[in-house]
Design a protein around this nucleic acid. Structure first.
Lengths: 132, 132
DNA sequence: ACACTTTTTTAGAATCATTATAAACTACAA
DNA sequence: TTGTAGTTTATAATGATTCTAAAAAAGTGT
């Protein structure tokens, strides 16, 4: 399996559940956005076994911590994740309540001039809200 | 009272509760961030009467709809609001779970090159996550 | 002032995403 | 194979937010 090594290398045991979630999340060229519940539905559809909701949460958080997923900072009732972990930004269509990717090349370089003592920058994310 | 007109003009009846919340939120030079619970505490401290939590929620949402408050797009267990409704950016200290303002001058100009048909840009917000 | 309608407030209940629990199970190394 | 540390699981608990429906207040006309 192609994800066994990936998981081992990050100190995560390659369990059947994690491998299956890897397939759903990463076995595609296109990156995408999802909520936990959308992911659960996708897993149910794609395979025939069911993974406990708690495991889906655990796995998504583990993957996020390892840098395989990113949370998208947006105020919504559900948390959105992104399989695209490269630096990039989002449009948020307020009317349609939809997220649209902005490639890094779509946004000029962002220069953060202020520094906070003892802290480093983990990420810089731009949210562009769209209206009609 | 200075907020009676403001409320009337936006079609909100100037009730005692709304006026009191206006005092807490807007009767200061400095803008600030808050969660609903922080606001409730502040109200309790500032005056002696207690406003029902449901009313605080209702009022904050009403004010947001009228453009007197802004939600800060961030993934946190509680929703953050900002009395600064102008375009500006934020640091988010992941460990302390604290928001810090970034003046516009702390961030170079941001150029959004991509366009979406029929949509205009309402706001451009940068969230800079900080870690130790 | 009074009567009447509409809006607002309120306490408490309901909802719903997420996290915690603790027992059963699994991977893996000695 | 046996031990143990890590993982999964169903279910319970948590906690922010929203709903409900009755009481209170505000606005309007008389």
């Amino acid at each position: 399996m192609k994800y066994v090594e990936k998981l081992r290398n990050s100190g995560l045991r390659p369990t059947k559940q994690r491998l299956q979630i890897c397939e759903v999340l990463f076995n595609t060229d296109k990156t995408f956005h999802f909520t936990i519940n959308e992911l659960e539905q996708k897993i149910k559809k794609q395979a025939n076994n069911k993974i406990s909701l708690a495991t889906v949460y655990n796995t998504v958080h583990a993957f996020e911590k390892k840098g395989y997923l990113k949370q998208i900072p947006i105020n919504s009732s559900e948390t959105y994740f992104d399989t695209n972990v490269t630096d990039h930004h989002h449009f948020y269509d307020l009317k349609e309540e939809k997220l649209i990717d902005l490639e890094n090349s779509d946004v000029g370089p962002i220069n953060i001039l202020k520094k906070i003592n003892g802290k480093k920058i983990k990420s810089v994310e731009v949210l562009v809200k769209l209206e009609d």
